[in-house]
Write a protein that binds this DNA or RNA. Structure first.
Lengths: 205, 205
DNA sequence: CCAAAAATCCCGGAAAAACAGTATAGGTGG
DNA sequence: CCACCTATACTGTTTTTCCGGGATTTTTGG
């Protein structure tokens, strides 16, 4: 029985490209595609593939959330994340949503085939460059509490400690403490450089 | 005589996808592809296409710089920018490098064909969403002087006015003046929010 | 239930940024 | 050649951040 494959990506040229790359691959059945999350979920109500290749940047929902939803409703489907971005934070979030693998869009046909075959064996697959990113992990993870992230976002919006205190109905000194803890966690010498690295590391937008 | 087409993109699936989408299009000859800037330039020394579809994110050089180089050496070749990102700054830079059009990667086959046909008539083409982005241009352009950008970068790295003054061999008060001018230009209430918008608008990295 | 983590709060002082107001030298382009 | 932009520089005041010390209460997970 051939393994059924489905792809979710908003780029027609990528869908067409993967279709073309895999069309002569034995043991794989092309079930079709969706260009957004909603149509993907609608399709799954009727038919279920064995593997979904899922882009992270979709117009209506992030691939990360879509993956979590799919795994919740259909735990048996294996999801492979597909993205241009070779970022630790993205790969990590995708895997936490239950994905079985992550493939960059510069993957070769061979990598694609290997990814699909590997996840079907209930193993995890990363394309070469993605695996490299996961290995080095030089930017060791900065973990913020809910409140700290909230305060950081307001700081990044240009609010002063005083304004933040009023907005959150807490004392200025508390805001000041959060600010100091943030500086320690980021090992930053001031808030400006902190905000820069927070944006670069996708901690805030 | 069919129009010769070449594509530069580091994503095999995109190359394959475009090839597949355009293979039955009459009047177009597929010349081949390159996955990085160097091999593109090498190819052009032997043969020249009429149109190049050029990705902006290449491993060895930005598509923006590659486009400028290609147009300098071969002004007769029409370049169409190709990218995931629908950002004003990118589209603008690509057009300033001499591109004739800009197509997002979510373009349909019809848009691709139209883009190629349009640029061959020496006209400019934008895919639907890219055109939208160019039209609204709500973030009216913030123009910084060379020195202001230099100072801004140092500020964003967490340096104080004093440190910057020493580094640039100018007075602290001069740095302070630059800082004030930056705040005025960005209409920001402090440097933190300024740095945030500067990163978002790709003015700094 | 209890320890750890998270969130809250306080003082005081030094350092830096923000704000207001001015000014001058040098280069560029119409 | 003259207006305009750019880069430079200064004085003084107010506001905000940064840093040194704490401390208490609430929440959460094993």
């Amino acid at each position: 029985m051939p393994h059924k494959l489905f792809i979710v990506d908003d780029h027609y040229m990528v869908i067409e490209g993967i279709h073309s790359l895999l069309q002569h691959e034995p043991g794989m059945e092309w079930m079709g595609h969706a260009t957004h999350a909603a149509s993907c979920l609608a399709f799954l109500q009727k038919e279920q593939p064995d593997v979904i290749l899922m882009d992270i940047n979709l117009p209506d929902m992030s691939g990360i959330d879509l993956c979590a939803e799919v795994k919740k409703q259909y735990p048996g489907i294996f999801v492979i994340g597909l993205s241009t971005f070779n970022q630790f934070s993205l790969i990590e979030k995708m895997m936490n949503s239950g994905a079985s693998g992550y493939v960059l869009k510069n993957a070769t046909r061979e990598e694609l085939v290997e990814a699909i075959q590997t996840v079907l064996k209930r193993k995890t697959y990363f394309s070469r460059e993605a695996a490299q990113t996961m290995r080095k992990d030089d930017t060791r993870k900065i973990v913020l509490t809910r409140r700290e992230k909230e305060v950081l976002e307001l700081i990044a919006d240009g609010m002063t400690n005083n304004e933040i205190a009023q907005k959150l109905f807490i004392s200025v000194t508390t805001v000041e403490t959060h600010r100091r803890n943030l500086l320690t966690k980021f090992e930053a010498k001031n808030i400006v450089s902190l905000v820069k690295t927070a944006i670069q590391q996708q901690i805030i937008q």
